[in-house]
Design a protein around this nucleic acid. Sequence first.
DNA 1: TGAACACTTCGACTGCAATCGAAGCGTTGC
DNA 2: GCAACGCTTCGATTGCAGTCGAAGTGTTCA
Lengths: 229, 229
Amino acid sequence: MQIIAPELADLAALIADPGRAGILTRLMDGRPQAASELARIAGVTPQTASWHLARLVERALLKVERRGPRRLYRLATPLVAQMLEGMMTVAAIDPQPLRPAPRIDAEMRRARTCYDHLAGELGVAVAEAMRERGQLHLDREAGELTAAGMAFLGDLGIDLRSPARSRRLLCRSCLDWSERRPHLAGRAGAAIADLAFQRDWIRRHPQGRSVEITAAGLAAFRTIFGARI
Amino acid sequence: MQIIAPELADLAALIADPGRAGILTRLMDGRPQAASELARIAGVTPQTASWHLARLVERALLKVERRGPRRLYRLATPLVAQMLEGMMTVAAIDPQPLRPAPRIDAEMRRARTCYDHLAGELGVAVAEAMRERGQLHLDREAGELTAAGMAFLGDLGIDLRSPARSRRLLCRSCLDWSERRPHLAGRAGAAIADLAFQRDWIRRHPQGRSVEITAAGLAAFRTIFGARI
DNA sequence: TGAACACTTCGACTGCAATCGAAGCGTTGC
DNA sequence: GCAACGCTTCGATTGCAGTCGAAGTGTTCA
């Protein structure tokens, strides 16, 4: 057996508890959360949640920060979010057509953040629209911003030139687990999400990772991006 | 709690057993394996392995194919390999400097296949060399083959033009869990691995995912690619 | 047809991980 | 300095996942 396998099993065991999985999923938007809120999400008592959180910190999936009497938890690195996204992509696969497919929360499916970029129907629609307009090449494995795409984002006030490297490296393809089609991640994806928050096109749901598309946002995504949403 | 969380926990529980983790790791090179071989790898009796394999097939992580009296198991989709690679990247993170870092099998670390492309020191060295020669842009998030890279691979007899799409989509960055630096994946990565097998630069280890670099291979990777290995 | 082989199913046993009540610790604010 | 609050630690209980021996199924080959 490969020596890495026990480490892999250990890591998986950490995610294998529904409470901890819920906590990790909740933290995927990158914002820190207090222990009590995470206990509520996991559906356990504070002392049980505390035990779960201690294990997650110990294995360096989370980091914790004291803020007064509270302790705020967040994902230790973006790598963890990326890993979870990959797992969700597989978890969302219909195990067998017999069983009903995993039900997905309607709001999450509509629009959410995936650490720092847009996901769900909104994320996929934006990526799809940019692709159709020749601003983006995108498939399941990779993504590339074209010159037209750079110019388009530039017009919106997004400057991706620094540090100036390949335009390809700005952009990563991320397979959306709810839509099962790629959306736009990487620096370009993060910049678009930032812009959308700044211009109040989307608002974070007070609890949870889903975001609400404002009326102005709906119009903007349709007219500016040409997204069918 | 998000509705996807229980599905995520279920999936993780499937990987959380050291035996199953070993089986999955073993199958990451894409080649099918018989149940008895997988039982040996998992370090359990055939009946226990059979039970593990049934669970993995039921949840659609593996698919099985009868070949005479044997049953050959393989990963159900490349998505599963990609997910495991992502998990290993996180699993290989030093949980805390106190504990010794996960020991990694020396052969695996040297050179292995990651589903369809090269990984380990060899994979990283090849990617690094191509990057230095301006044949490739690569970072943790994305990768892009340059015109020079296309020409270089073309001279080696690798034709990536069909189906002609963006040169970007040929190429994916994959963070190497043992080296913690990116190596080359995607269609370009797979083509290079294929070529290396064809020309007998590398040979599969009869058991396990590690590959052996032949003397001719070492010379070829050094002179043709300029890899420091 | 029957022997050899690969694998699976069944049933019973075992150990560990998750849980919560109770109690303890640390910070804040009056 | 003490009360209130958020969180953690400790200890005891519980249930389920993993294990293997024994027996069963299915395939191949002579």
